[in-house]
């Protein structure tokens, strides 16, 4: 990767992290209504994949979707406005944290139903194939989602129709609050996908470069008509399933240890500075810029216009006749 490419990737990684850290603070002070699921710890997966994508490529995310939105280029302020329920939010306050979408960026929505995005993204890939496009569709699904039947229906259909579709399985080891090992008959999630008849690889999801390389290969294959594939990327979830999850199922020490050993940001910084590609000053400048962007996003969200009751009735149909 070039210097500029790595600088851009670092900006994205830091943006994803700071967005979640800030969301957590604001959520805890009661500023944000509803449930929220933080992506902190898994940033290298979304960024490693989406750095290969353009606005024409489509993605569908999960309930833990902030990272995918940002990695696909959604505006952090417009996202924060959506978390606040403002009419200036990306979905005008109708979606909230679990349904952020930005069709102008090819982001077809975070999705609150586990596994549901996989079949829909197959449809996006089908549209690409039918119209002779070179764009691809990516669905992100958690390890818990690999126990949903429709994910395998989607994989099979993508293989049968040889669609430009990439299934990214984000393995953080937990399906909500249950260890995946306790509920997966075959813990090798890549083997499950491979059994559907497509290439499937497992990568270290903490290592941006590993994800980026695997995604580059899968996406290039899809673009040239080589069909679908699966990437299983493992990375920790630094926070609970949702904000407010007391995490009785793991100790603070365990989480602290994950943060020490399995954090994609220091891992990335260590490598690019050791190789002399990015300087400590450049890293610090990005960090300061992202902090400013997040302050600005939160300030805009707090001042954002609010919906009025009549808005309930808008956007149900294009035309109800």
């Amino acid at each position: 990767m070039t210097h500029d490419g790595l600088l851009r990737a670092y900006r994205r990684l830091r943006l994803l992290r700071e967005f979640e850290e800030r969301t957590r603070v604001e959520f805890q002070t009661g500023q944000i209504a509803g449930f929220t699921h933080l992506y902190a710890g898994m940033e290298a997966i979304a960024v490693g994949v989406c750095e290969h994508l353009t606005d024409e490529d489509r993605i569908i995310s999960t309930h833990r979707g902030h990272g995918h939105c940002l990695a696909k280029g959604c505006d952090p302020a417009a996202m924060m406005l959506e978390l606040w329920g403002s009419t200036d939010g990306l979905c005008r306050g109708k979606g909230g944290t679990m349904h952020i979408a930005d069709f102008s960026r090819g982001m077809l929505g975070a999705n609150a139903v586990v596994g549901a995005g996989a079949p829909i993204a197959v449809g996006a890939a089908l549209a690409s194939a039918m119209t002779g496009g070179t764009w691809v569709a990516v669905s992100f699904v958690g390890d818990g989602g690999t126990n949903i039947g429709s994910v395998y229906e989607a994989m099979n259909l993508a293989v049968v129709l040889k669609l430009p579709k990439i299934f990214v399985i984000e393995d953080n080891g937990w399906g909500e609050m249950t260890p995946i090992a306790d509920v997966a008959g075959n813990r090798d999630l890549a083997a499950r996908a491979a059994a559907m008849g497509m290439p499937a690889v497992s990568v270290d999801g903490v290592d941006f470069f590993a994800v980026h390389a695997a995604a580059g290969e899968a996406i290039a294959r899809a673009r040239r008509g080589g069909g679908p594939s699966t990437i299983v990327a493992s990375a920790p979830r630094f926070y609970g399933h949702h904000e407010g999850d007391p995490q009785l199922y793991r100790s603070r020490e365990e989480v602290a240890e994950l943060r020490r050993r399995e954090d994609c940001l220091p891992r990335f910084i260590g490598r690019v500075t050791a190789e002399g590609i990015l300087s400590a000053d450049e890293i610090a400048a990005v960090d300061a810029d992202i902090a400013r962007i997040m302050d600005d996003a939160v300030a805009k969200a707090k001042a954002g216009p609010r919906p009025v009751p009549a808005d309930v009735h808008e956007h149900v149909y294009a035309r109800y006749r």
Binding site: I120, A121, V122, L126, M130, S150, E153, N156
Partner: peptide, 17 residues
Amino acid sequence: SEAAIIGAASGAALCGM
């Protein structure tokens, strides 16, 4: 695979088909 059929249709519809 009814879920895949409906998903394939809806995803394609979201992309202009």
